[in-house]
């Protein structure tokens, strides 16, 4: 069976959920061979094996943390040369897309970004993409070279599928371009204790109607009652009420959770682009005419300062 390279996104050896989802998709096409780079790379092997990786290629060097993107491209290319895979799958993070794109040019292949599903096809893997603010769904193939495909979080279920997961050291020689862009300082983002926005099963968002950064506390309280991530519309972020890293929409994060709760968000195209593919959508808004109500499974026309705290209290009561 053909092998499929899967680029591993991990933090000091802890594999992030989108990579496990990639393994589910990779198994539809062939045998997953994982590539884990940087500090803690070898510690990823157990989780990757449990979810279907037949092999885990690892390499650590200071270059991965000290220089931007290119060292990782060099390593993924080394893995590509060693394995000759049927496809290369990479998580659709900002960095993942950059790594994938540069690899594609180097190996003379086409690239598909932000796939939301992947199936085997007669002419190679077929990717589903959601385009034009999620108003269209396309099916796309790579028609030249080995398919390089980046896949968005929440595109597949994480499935246990135990495999060997044999760890092998990857031999990497860095190119002379690897040290071109130096990372001179790094400030880790402060952890909120909440799930990562793009990976969360439930997202609770606030918009213009929240009317002030201090009022985001009621959005956070609802999120915490559901174990959800917190999102914000561009209006709320531009007003300085919530960090840009939490922005949902065209120029922020694109999310596709099981449940999306929009509070005080009108639902402009900019916002819809980032949340329209959510499975269940709920909204609370004072304005009965707000376009967000065209999308909802359940909507409450009312003041979010009344409805949201009542909802939070009711959830906490039911949880006992």
């Amino acid at each position: 069976m053909a092998e499929v390279l899967v680029y591993v996104d991990h933090v000091d050896g802890a594999v992030r959920k989108p990579t496990l989802e990639l393994l589910t998709l990779a198994r539809r096409i062939g045998e997953p061979v994982a590539v884990a780079l940087g500090s803690g790379a070898e510690n990823t092997a157990a989780a990757l094996a449990e979810h279907g990786a037949v092999k885990v290629l690892t390499h650590d060097a200071a270059e991965y943390a000290d220089y931007l993107v290119v060292p990782k491209v060099d390593a993924l290319q080394a893995a590509y040369d060693a394995v000759s895979p049927a496809a290369v799958l990479v998580p659709s993070s900002a960095e993942g897309k950059e790594i994938a794109a540069r690899l594609a040019v180097r190996i003379g292949s086409g690239i598909i970004t932000d796939a939301t599903d992947l199936e085997a096809g007669d002419e190679g893997p077929v990717a589903t993409q959601s385009v034009f603010a999620a108003s269209f769904t396309t099916k796309t193939r790579v028609s030249k070279g080995t398919p390089v495909i980046t896949v968005k979080p929440n595109s597949a279920a994480v499935e246990a599928a135990p495999a060997a997961g044999a760890v092998e050291a990857l031999a990497v020689t860095f190119s002379d371009k690897a040290t071109g862009t130096k990372v001179t300082a790094r400030t880790p983002r402060e952890s909120t204790g909440r799930p990562e926005l793009t990976e969360a099963a439930i997202v609770v968002s606030g918009g213009r109607g929240v009317n002030g950064s201090e009022n985001f506390a009621i959005i956070e309280a609802l999120a915490d009652s559901l174990g959800a991530a917190v999102g914000a519309s561009r209006a709320a972020v531009d007003a300085g009420w919530y960090p840009h890293s939490n922005q949902v929409g065209q120029t922020g994060k694109s999310v596709s959770p099981q449940l999306y709760i929009a509070n005080g968000i009108s639902g402009a195209i900019q916002h819809r682009a980032g949340m329209q593919t959510s499975k269940t959508i709920v909204a609370v808004n004072k304005d009965a005419e707000a376009p967000i109500f065209d999308l909802v499974d359940y909507g409450v026309v009312g003041d979010l300062f009344d409805v949201v705290p009542q909802l939070t209290e009711e959830i906490n009561t039911r949880k006992g």
């Binding site: 909802v296 499974d297 409450v300 003041d303 009711e314």
Partner: peptide, 14 residues
């Protein structure tokens, strides 16, 4: 979807 107007019980209905 279902759209309700909050008459004091909107949060509970949700």
């Amino acid at each position: 979807g279902t759209i309700v107007k909050d008459e004091g019980e909107g949060g509970k209905q949700l």
